[in-house]
């Protein structure tokens, strides 16, 4: 994975249990498709974030299998019906096998 910059996560400042919230995530990654060639005409190997997993309170709540058709710096937003207090754990894994993990607690009122 390219020099790790902190992934960007956007969740509401607070939420009530049972409320449906939107979770927006963005990670910095080149998402090299594997179809391009370098200046010498040699193919540039594919390197994409192929899996994104979101957990909340240690339960998997969303998963995405990504292909090279996802733009560089993958942005993914999904919804969650807040089951109660908890912390998000997001994990992005790329073709090199590197996994980047980011956690963010949700303020449940």
């Amino acid at each position: 994975m390219a020099p790790a910059t902190k992934p960007r996560i956007k969740i509401p400042e607070s939420a009530r249990a049972g409320e449906i919230i939107e979770v927006r995530t963005l990670v910095t990654h080149v998402m090299e498709t594997g179809n391009r060639k370098d200046r010498d005409g040699k193919p540039i190997p594919r390197d994409i974030v192929n899996t994104f997993v979101a957990k909340y309170a240690d339960q998997e709540v969303f998963r995405a299998d990504l292909g090279p058709g996802i733009s560089a710096n993958p942005f993914i937003a999904f919804s969650l019906k807040v089951p109660g207090p908890g912390t998000f754990e997001f994990a992005w894994t790329d073709d090199e096998g590197t996994t980047l993990i980011e956690t963010q607690p949700l303020n449940v009122v």
Partner: peptide, 17 residues
């Protein structure tokens, strides 16, 4: 392009990318 896996915990079936 992508495959998104959902479950009832999502509340609504809506994904953006």
């Amino acid at each position: 392009i992508a495959t998104f896996h959902l479950s009832p915990v999502n509340g609504v079936a809506k994904v953006q990318s």
